[in-house]
Structure formats: C-alpha cells, structure tokens
Design a protein around this nucleic acid. Sequence first.
DNA 1: CATGAATGAGAGTTCATTCAT
DNA 2: AATGAATGAACTCTCATTCAT
Lengths: 209, 209, 209, 209
Amino acid sequence: MAKATRNAEATKAKIIQNAMLLFAKNGYDAATADEIAKASGVNKAMIFYYYKNKAGLYSAVMSDLFDAIYKEVGDSRKCCNSATAELRAFIETYSSYAQKHSYFPALLLRELSDSGAHVPEMMFASMRRLFALLNDILRKGEKEGVFKHSIPMVLHFMIIGTLNLLVTTEPLRRKAAEEDSTIDTCIECPMDEITEYIFTTIKTTLEVK
Amino acid sequence: MAKATRNAEATKAKIIQNAMLLFAKNGYDAATADEIAKASGVNKAMIFYYYKNKAGLYSAVMSDLFDAIYKEVGDSRKCCNSATAELRAFIETYSSYAQKHSYFPALLLRELSDSGAHVPEMMFASMRRLFALLNDILRKGEKEGVFKHSIPMVLHFMIIGTLNLLVTTEPLRRKAAEEDSTIDTCIECPMDEITEYIFTTIKTTLEVK
Amino acid sequence: MAKATRNAEATKAKIIQNAMLLFAKNGYDAATADEIAKASGVNKAMIFYYYKNKAGLYSAVMSDLFDAIYKEVGDSRKCCNSATAELRAFIETYSSYAQKHSYFPALLLRELSDSGAHVPEMMFASMRRLFALLNDILRKGEKEGVFKHSIPMVLHFMIIGTLNLLVTTEPLRRKAAEEDSTIDTCIECPMDEITEYIFTTIKTTLEVK
Amino acid sequence: MAKATRNAEATKAKIIQNAMLLFAKNGYDAATADEIAKASGVNKAMIFYYYKNKAGLYSAVMSDLFDAIYKEVGDSRKCCNSATAELRAFIETYSSYAQKHSYFPALLLRELSDSGAHVPEMMFASMRRLFALLNDILRKGEKEGVFKHSIPMVLHFMIIGTLNLLVTTEPLRRKAAEEDSTIDTCIECPMDEITEYIFTTIKTTLEVK
DNA sequence: CATGAATGAGAGTTCATTCAT
DNA sequence: AATGAATGAACTCTCATTCAT
C-alpha cells in the first residue's frame, strides 16, 4: 500500500535478510545491531521494535531458515516411493538448500557447537523434526527389507556434518589450495558429484548383504 | 603467600587450561579475559603480559590442541602396516581424542564455521596436516589395491564432522531424549560402537568390488 | 469497533487518569509514554497530540490535582466561623484528600524535592495559593486573639509534610511492621485519629497562654 | 602512597561525593553515569568497576548518608540526661545535619515517596533505626512522667518532614518570595529559630497537663 | 613476575517524539 | 481523531587493553 518506507513487512524482511548474512558471517556475538541496521538501511531501533532484542532477531532468523529447510526436505519425500529414492531426495534436497542458502551451514554448525545457547527451545524442535524425517526413511527401508539396521543419529550427522562442512570451509579450502597445490581440497569438485558420493556411501553401508 | 606466584610456566599453563574450557564453552567472543583470569586464579593483566592479546591467547590454545591431536593421530599410524589398519587407527585415535578433550570439537567446528577468522594462519597449517595424514592413508590403500578411488576431502569431513557433532551435541541430544522418548538420539550408544560403525561405513565405501 | 474512539474528552480523561497513577507510582522519569498509553488503551501518539510532550502531560496532571485540592480545602473554610474551626477544616480536608487521592502525596513530595523541576510555574502558584489559605487562617486567629504569633511556613510544612509522609510511606511501614513487630509504625492507626492528633498539636502550639 | 591518580580510596570518595550531589539535584533516573563520572574527573567505567551498577552506587551513597546521620543523632543523646534534653538534641542534630548535607533531604523525601524503590532493604533498616531512637526518647519520657502518651510515628514525621521540606524547598521559597512579597515564605528565618520552634511545638504537645 | 587502577571504544537497549496514512 | 512505523539521541553497562607500582 506504500512505496518503500512505512511498510512493516518490507522493513522486517530487510532486517531478517541482513541479519542472516551478518550472523552467518560473524557469529552471534560479533554481529552488531548497528551493523545489521545499517546494512538494512533502517534505524537501529527498528530491530528492537520488531524483534524485542538481539536474541529475538536471531531466533526469528533461525526459525525462518529451519522452517524453510524442513519444508523443502519434507516436501521432497512426497515425490518418491522407495526408501532408497527418499534417502537420495533427502540428501540432495539438503545439499541444494545448503548451497543456495550458504549462510545456513555456518549458523547451524555454530549453534550446534553452542548446544543451542541462543535459541534453545527452537533448536530442539527444529533439529528433531529434520532428524525424524531421516529416521522415518531409514525405518521404512528396514521394513521394506532394503536397508540393514543402522544408527540413524550417526548417519544423520554424517550427511549434514559433511555437507555443512563442505559449504562453510569453502573459502578456507580455496585459500589452502592456492597456497599448497600438492593437496587436493576438492575445491573444484562439482557439488552434485559430492552429493552423489555421499549418497552412495550411505546407501552402501545400508545395503543388505 | 607462596602458592604458585612467580612461576611463569605454571601461570601460563593455568591460563591456557582455563581459556580452553571457556573458549569452548562460550565461544571466542563471549569468553572474557576477566572470566579466564578469575578461573585461572591469576591477575587479568597476566593474560596480556604472556599472550599479548585475546587473539594471541586463543591462538596458543588452538595450537596446543592441534599439535596434540596431530601428534596423537600421527603416532597412531606407526603401529600398523596395512592401509585399512591405519584408517581404523586414524578414526579411533581422533574419536578418543575428541572424547577426552571434549572442548575440542566445539572449538574446531566454530572455527571452521568462521573460516578461521580468529587464527587464520594456523588453521590452514593444522587442518592441512591432519588432512594430509588421511590423504596419505587413502593413497597408500589405493596403491596397495585395497581401496577404491575416493574423494578424500569428503571422507575427511565425514569422519571428523560426525565425530565432532556427536561430541558437541551430547547435551542437546540428552535433553531431546528426556523430552521426547520416541526418538532415539543415540544418547546411550557406546562411543566405541559408534566409532566402529563410522569406520565400517568408510571402509565399505572404499572396498574394491 | 465503537467503544470510545473518536471521543476526544474521554480519551484525554483516560490518559490523565492513568498518567497520574503511573507518575505517582514510578516518578516522572520512570513513567514512560508507552506505559501510559497502554494503560489508557490509547495510541501513544495521542499523548503528544493532546499534551504536546511528556512535560505537558505531567503539568496537566499536576494542575488537575492542585486545582482540586485547592478547591476542596478552600471550600471547607466557608462552613466555619472561628479560626480554630477553619484550621481544623483545613487539616481534615487536606488529610481526607490525600487519603482519597493516594497518588497525590508522592507526586507532591517528589516535586518539592526537585524544587519544581518539571512544572516550575505551576508549583509556585499552586503551593502559594494553598499556603495562603493557611496563612489567612492563622492571621485571622491572631487578629481574633485566639492564636499566638506563629511561623506559618513551618506549621504548613508540619501539616502537609506529616500527612503526605504518612500516606506515601504506608507500604514501607506495613512491611517494616511485618518484619519487626517490636516497633510500632502506626500501621493500624485510624487516619482520623492521626488527623485529630495533628490538629491538636498545632492548636496547642498556637494557644494563647 | 600515591599522589592523586591510582588511588582507589580517593577515586571512590570523589565518585560518591559527586553522585550524592547529582542524585540529590536530579533524582535517581535523571542523574546519569556520564555526568557523575565527568563531575568526579574519572572514567565512567570506574563507577561500574567500584559499584557494579548505578543502583549499587546509589545504595552506597544512601548508606553513607544514613550511617552518618544515625551516628550523629545517636551520639547526640549521650550527652544528656533528661528525656526533654534528648528530644531537643534529636531535633537539633537532625536539623543541623540536614543543613550541612543539604542534598540529604531531597534524597530522603524522594526515596520515601518511592517506598524505597531503589534501595529497599536499606531504607527499612536505616529509617527504622532512626525512628527507634526517637521512640526510645519518647518512651523514656513517658516512664519518667514528663511526657504524655503520644503517637511516635506522627511526631517523627512531623520533625523530619518539616525539616526536610524546609531545606529542599529553599530555592522554591526564595523564588516565591522574590515574585510575591506579600507572602512570607520564611526565607530569612534563621534555621536555629525554626528548629527551636519545632522543638517547642513537639514539647508542648507532649507536656503533661 | 604480578597486581589493581584506569581507560576508551563500543554494544544493546530505551524512549520521547515525529511522520505518514 | 487515531494509528503504527520510524527516528535520533541518550543511557547503562561491558570489555579488551594499558599504566603505575
């Protein structure tokens, strides 16, 4: 109804967007309200007007991300009928989300390192929901007789740990490659090959016989 | 009146030890010099006297940890003659180190999430050295004809990502288990079983035919 | 949808009423426009629309109170013919007003402590008018030969100081009584006895011979 | 052991001294840490270094004042042997303290108006101790048969209410006198005459027969 | 080597006030 | 008349870092 100013939704969106980037780049503590406000082109007080405090903003950011990934990964299951296909969809969707929203892996890994210090309640629910998806797939596969018994928690961390680390360490790996060409930090590896490799590894370990 | 004053090495050791714990628990930014000094029972100024600044202290902490893990993992290779045995040693040693020094995983994951923001130079070197070890093992296995061609970087992240996440998320997983018993967060899993499971997974994906 | 919107007088009255309470409870600085607006069920901007700024609102509140007390105390004189009776009326009316509007004493004492920092002009006029009333009574008594020469300002502060302190300290005295029963903070004293006691004291000091 | 800087006691004293003045002049909320630091010629952080937070500083200020007045008033009793003389000493000592430390009345009246919002615990204890002194004197007089039964709480407020108001309203009364000479705000009254007048009033109301 | 005192630069948060609708 | 969005100026408090002893 307005052009650009005096538009609550637009203002909130800008704040969330820039907060995401800055929280991902600098971490919760090092990302300042000043910085976020300036990047968003809004007055610093608006952050507190809409999100009460820094933690509230952070929660909002994380909620958005977790809701989105849960939805995408959850939706991806619908399109398949075998447990193996669902597993592939899980890994591929997670991988593509992590690449598209490259700030997400850093945020997630840091939050897990802090045991959910900044958004305790939400981390539980969100991580659990995501894990429950994989859990379902694995159980289904077992029931169908195509998967061996496994340790779902370990496989879950194998998938998301690997993918998240690959995304977050990209700049680090690139620099390492520049400085020491004798070591292959997989900087040129196409992500879909990597994703496929991860899928194959998990599938192989699950294969009966 | 005598206690431990006027003993440079002891003072430095106390600082490092407590800094480790607090950096791990609270992260780089949230760990304060005041806190570290009080926990160590030394005057705050000593931190700056011995380590120049906060970043210097952090570097020292990380160096110690990385040197130690590199040494332990490196040493573990000596005792074996097959690539497969060396791979198992790599994984088991890393796993046992991560458990014994349970602050390490949080520190490492956070630092990787930050692309080595706080200790740039060192992260390169140390991570590279560790990765080089695994790389060697994999190449050796390939040469011996017992391992298929693989993507070492991915396997590396699979191993350390999974192990580190399992250690750091322990409190989170415990709480989740308490609140929702229908989901198995593997909180009672013995770590050696998990370690073996990881090893088996990696080995299986490497097996020729 | 109809309630009380679009009704200037009602809105203004609600604001004044709640502002009174909150200024009394929290003091000028600690009472916020947000708080007053919320308590009044009106939009914050209305405060500024009707009263220009916080000081304006405060002035309006104080004016109302001072006008009311002046009117009540002033009116009370009419009904009597002797200076002594007028003095009693002054004290009793003030006392009953302070009890009925229990936020008034806090506001008055604070404003006197601040030397009228927030409502300079008005405090002069209002306090003076009130004091002039007592002054008149005392002079009249002197002329009639029933009162000795006195120091009106001192008697004025004796009356209003005592009454205001008794009202404002009520919660404090109640707590003190609960914690230490050996001391009598007069928490159960009927206010009319106290008022009578004050009157007697003043009368006694004024009595000729 | 030092000259002026690096002297904890001197620094603390300067802070307390200036805080007193500014809290008295502007009230708790309106007195800012910046202001107090600047007035004291110290870095703002020192306030928090020594007193933890603003409330802590305020508490320290009030403690100092209350301890001092209690001590002075308490000591004054020793020198007398009759209840009447002790009563005079109580009033005179309180009066002289209030004049000498002219910031005290404002602080006290405001705190009483707030029901001890900022220093709850202390207000109880301190006010009670002071009141207990007067209470003792009155009881002693009753036992000796020189005082009638009275309401100590009311007499206490009569004394301190009047004296405190006279001190705090001084600037107000001066301005009023300048603007309207027909009214006598007792601005030229010598404080010892006023004190004597208060004493006489209280004594008169206590006199048997 | 060791300490407590001192500092300066910010960070998060609040709040009176104004603007656009 | 009434509202929610927006702002700017403070304000309290923290913290890495340095100085004097």
